[in-house]
Design a protein around this nucleic acid. Structure first.
Lengths: 368, 368
DNA sequence: CTGTTAGCGCTTTCAA
DNA sequence: TTGAAAGCGCTAACAG
């Protein structure tokens, strides 16, 4: 298979074929006007006939625009990011831009590498999302120093307050969920945070703490565990929370749905019924097919809209338009799916304790 | 916010700063050799100091390689495609390539548009996946005529037998599943196909039919419904299958997991228990968090591997290497998750009929 | 209205 | 070992 790209027809070929200069051809190609109707038509016909397509690399070299942006995310397979990516891509598409997909797996190394590639002017600008804040910011700092246009989504870096971004009000979301849980009568509420190196994890935790304070509930450090936003992390965190054998809580609030589900598995394995024995709440509102159970009461983050929104923000930046406000913040919506039960007195806790010796509901289940 | 890209430092700047020619700098940058050690070191130091990065657009113009490929898929939000995309991206990354994400939603219009963009030499090659075969092939035909390098994954177009591709043996997968279902005692097996305009849907159906023939089971057209690979499509198809009020089947085989789940919902709403009353099987093995129920016995398609594999195939094409074989076919693996129950005599069917008047298990559930 | 010309930033002969 | 020079395919003044 000899598949090397054939020599493409160039603007010069068309010019020669039409007996005009390449400038004229360029003008009709770009609808720049200033070309006689007859000439223009003829040129168009020849272009059509020979299926000429301008070489966009050459165009980019001179216009200094590639019409491409980079999207740097941890992993497209995470439903949250694929949703976000789709929002970005749709916005790009609407503006005749392409979107370069960059998966970092949260690795500073990979992110740095992508930054290197992007600033080679492969992309006109870039969008960066969640990452451990400090470690990788040096790469971003050089970008900023070169005044390379970029925006953040759900990524907050203290050192760069001037970078435009789209955010979600994580603290408000956690606060709202906590108020709801508390309104159902719970006072002993366990919390599984995200990795506290990330800004959003810290904000969610802040919301949790704020709510406790607001209701005069004493913070119990034994009820707080740091997770990693992954399923297995939720499972392990729940394991840790139950270490003392006595479930010191009637409700469990995980910082994202995946961890909530991981915790759900552990709890179920230990014989707890949810929400009868323990209530569970999550964050993200990952969309699964409607029949899928369990359903977790959660906070919805409009990932698609976040993606679309940053992209438009980035375009404003690219156009040299004023970006106001510098930050756009999306507000949370609570999605009640019934996994937080009302608490009648101390009942749930006592029942839970009683079930502790019960057989595992799902003995041989593996973690991913 | 004035964010227009600042003038970047160019090779000429470095040359001047070093007192050498740009050719020398170029040699150093590309490790082309033929440069004195002292000069090279000095140049490297200056490059480092001024943070020079070669403009890749200019490089591309001359080398005629952009180090980017295009990935054209229906929708990243579909877990199958995000998995595939990740495989593609990883392979790209390993070869210092970028991956341009192109979502078409199955629209011929969008696909054509992307083809136009890609052939502008934005990408060195492209990967195309599932789509209605005939309608959009004209765009692909022009690509081929221009000998633009591209490959298929899970997309088969009769008119282009010479395009390299990576495939999944859909017929074998369906056959394997059917044999399994039949081995459990089922003879009345309903089938929900994918859109028959696609090759893989036709192949899966073929596997279904082949298995029936193999076991001397008469084909009942009333047990075959065409779906659309979507959740709602599975729901509606199941509705149609139950139209006569009597479930004329003891097992239901859907051409993908999403439809299987949609059908599951309908069946459950109608009061059937699964798999006690009706068995259900799917295709794709979409990965959900481990606690999630229901589990559907299914055929696994290694989407990630498919993606990785085509990408490597495309790279071979780009290198002018011989692509052999022209087609790579991945084989199915059955994942038993317990949704296909053994059938004892006619029991299941009779029980199912009896339950028909029962109340809906999930009354107010909405479709997406 | 149209053509000439000078690059965009880089790679790559070809000479020295 | 190094440099000069010729482009890659196109756009954008600037003349005519």
């Amino acid at each position: 298979v000899r598949a090397r790209t054939a020599r493409a027809v160039t603007i010069r070929d068309i010019a020669r074929l039409c007996g005009v200069s390449i400038a004229t051809v360029s003008r009709v190609v770009n609808d720049a006007g200033g070309v006689g109707a007859r000439t223009a038509n003829h040129v168009r016909k020849v272009i059509e006939k020979h299926d000429f397509h301008p070489n966009s690399v050459a165009q980019s070299l001179i216009t200094k625009r590639t019409h491409t942006i980079g999207l740097v995310i941890p992993d497209v397979r995470n439903p949250f990011f694929s949703e976000l990516a789709r929002g970005v891509e749709d916005a790009c598409n609407a503006n005749d831009f392409g979107c370069l997909l960059c998966n970092t797996d949260g690795s500073t190394e990979k992110e740095r590498e992508y930054v290197r590639v992007l600033r080679g002017r492969v992309a006109d600008g870039a969008i960066f999302t969640t990452q451990n804040a400090l470690e990788s910011s040096d790469a971003l700092l050089t970008l900023r120093n070169r005044s390379y246009p970029f925006c953040f989504v759900e990524r907050y870096i203290d050192e760069m307050p001037d970078v435009p971004g789209v955010y979600f009000d994580n603290e408000a979301g956690a606060l709202q969920m906590m108020r709801y849980i508390i309104s159902r009568g719970h006072r002993r509420i366990a919390f599984i945070s995200g990795p506290l190196s990330t800004h959003n994890a810290r904000m969610r935790k802040l919301g949790y703490l704020r709510a406790l304070e607001e209701h005069g509930i004493r913070v119990d450090e034994k009820l707080i565990v740091e997770g990693n936003y992954r399923y297995s992390g939720g499972y392990q965190a729940a394991e840790k929370l139950l270490a003392g054998r006595k479930p010191g809580f009637t409700a469990l609030f995980a910082s994202n749905d995946l961890m909530a589900l991981g915790a759900y598995q552990l709890l179920e394995e230990r014989g707890f019924r949810i929400p009868a024995d323990v209530s569970i709440a999550g964050f993200d509102n990952i969309g699964y097919p409607p029949v899928m159970r369990p359903l977790i009461t959660t906070i919805e983050i409009p990932a698609y809209d976040l993606g679309k929104s940053v992209t438009e923000m980035l375009f404003a930046l690219l156009d040299g338009r004023r970006v106001t406000p510098l930050r756009r913040v999306f507000q949370p919506v609570l999605r009640d799916k019934g996994s937080v039960a009302p608490l009648d007195g101390n009942g749930a806790r006592r029942r839970a304790a009683a079930r502790l010796t019960g057989a595992s509901a799902h003995p041989g289940k593996e973690l991913p």
